[in-house]
Simulated assay, not measured.
Amino acid sequence: MTTNYSAKHDNSFDIIRLLAAVAVIYSHHFALSGFSEPQVLGLESFGTTAVIIFFSISGYLIAQSYQRSSSDFEYARKRFLRVYPGLAVCLVFTIYICGGLLGSESFLHWVTSWDALKTWLRVMGLTGIGFVGVTPEGMNNFTNGYIYPNTMNGSLWTLFFEVFDYIVLAFCLKWFSRYNAGLWIFLVGSVVLQLLCLHFGITKLALVATSHFSIPFAVGALFCVYRDRWINNPKVKVVLLVVALIALLLSGLDVILVKTLYTVAVCYLTLLIGISFRDRLIKGRFDFSYGIYIYAFPVQQIAINELGIGFWSSMLLSLLVTLVMAALSWFLIEKPMIGRKKSRVLVRATE
């Protein structure tokens, strides 16, 4: 595997991801309270737009990670350590603590039950993701009587598609690296699949979500592999910006390309802004976005349905509690795992 790449550039991806994570909390709070989620240009919710932003940045950074990895095993190891340790602890909180304290069975009975362990294993295996398809019994009937029932961590369902994109990207870069053909096939295939879903009214989640999230991921990856051609070229950046703005304007038309154009435009703008501006506030200090993503949903469910303190008060409380939990997840779990990844690289460099 070739490991030649240009030097790491300053960017503002960390702060963009943090703002996108907060946008998800804002958007989800409406849905969890029984209201329609606010829309961006009447096309996508704030939450869906934030997920597009996440996937576009992820595509860029994961492609870079693959190029910098010494082997496919090293790449897989880094991805595992970034996703699964934090997820494992979050599921203990969601399934055992929330389900045990707020479910129908007693705490001791629930935490020692096979149903609790089975649910934990299912979601760790990325099946029943986000407790979509997990029966109420698999959640100790937690959230049954809530405004948004039978879903105690609905955000996690996108993790399956994130990991799917990790695998597809590695396959494309390893076996179809010439002219980056694999990534182009990945992007075109995702666009075609989305257009087919829109044209024929296909609503099957696996097809709709795969196409919808793989488009920004593939675009982000292509931005990465072609970065030497545009990253220090203001003219190319201006052209890309104009293309993105035109696509954003066209996405307001009532045409079959509406969601595709909107997705591509958001992706372009995210990457251009992320690369063009330097984050002096949080870059290199912390990254709470993943912690917010995995903890916000159950915190919001509890704040909305158990406390009865009003919409905006519960949103503010949810944000504060989630930030605390995300900080604990970062400093106690995620950062140490990232440290293990970096120390492994340093050991290899000194051998």
Rank of each mutant, 00 (worst) to 15 (best):
Tyr295His: 14
Ala244Trp: 01
Val243Tyr: 02
Ala303Cys: 15
Ala296Cys: 09
Lys283Cys: 08
Leu241His: 05
Asp254Lys: 14
Trp230Glu: 08
Lys237Ile: 01
Gly291Glu: 08
Phe297Lys: 01
Phe297Glu: 07
Leu307His: 09
Ser314Asn: 11
Thr263Asp: 00
Ile246Tyr: 11
Asp254Glu: 09
Arg280Ala: 09
Gln301Tyr: 10
Gln301His: 03
Gln301Leu: 13
Asp279Phe: 11
Leu240Thr: 00
Gly252Gln: 13
Leu249Asp: 01
Leu245Thr: 02
Asp254His: 12
Tyr262Pro: 01
Ile256Gly: 07
Asp228Val: 13
Ile275Trp: 06
Ile302Asp: 02
Phe297Val: 05
Ser313His: 04
Thr263Tyr: 00
Gly252Pro: 03
Val264Ser: 01
Asn305Asp: 15
Thr270Asn: 03
Ala265His: 07
Ala296Gly: 02
Phe286Met: 10
Cys267Met: 03
Lys283Thr: 14
Tyr262His: 03
Lys259Arg: 10
Tyr290Gly: 10
Gly284Leu: 02
Leu240His: 04
Leu307Tyr: 14
Arg280Gln: 10
Arg285Ala: 13
Trp230His: 11
Lys283Ile: 00
Leu261Cys: 10
Ile275Gln: 07
Asp228Thr: 15
Trp230Asp: 07
Gly310Cys: 05
Asn233Phe: 03
Leu307Phe: 15
Gly308Gln: 12
Asn232Tyr: 01
Ile294Phe: 07
Ile294Leu: 03
Asn232Pro: 01
Ile275Lys: 07
Leu248Lys: 04
Ile273Leu: 07
Arg229Lys: 15
Lys283Leu: 12
Val255Gln: 04
Tyr226Pro: 00
Leu245Tyr: 03
Ile302Lys: 00
Asp279Val: 05
Arg278Ala: 13
Phe288Gln: 05
Thr270Ala: 01
Val299Ile: 14
Cys267Gly: 15
Leu241Trp: 11
Leu253Thr: 07
Ile246Lys: 08
Tyr226Ala: 09
Leu281Thr: 04
Phe288Ser: 08
Val243Ala: 15
Leu240Lys: 01
Asp279Cys: 09
Arg278Ile: 14
Tyr295Arg: 05
Arg227Gln: 13
Val299Leu: 06
Leu261Asn: 01
Gly274Met: 02
Arg278Cys: 10
Ala303Ser: 12
Tyr226Ile: 00
Val299Phe: 03
Trp312His: 14
Ile302Arg: 03
Arg278Gly: 00
Gln300Trp: 08
Asp228Leu: 11
Ser276Cys: 11
Lys237Leu: 13
Val299Cys: 11
Ser313Tyr: 03
Tyr295Ala: 07
Leu281Arg: 09
Ile282Ser: 02
Ile292Phe: 15
Tyr295Cys: 05
Gly274Leu: 09
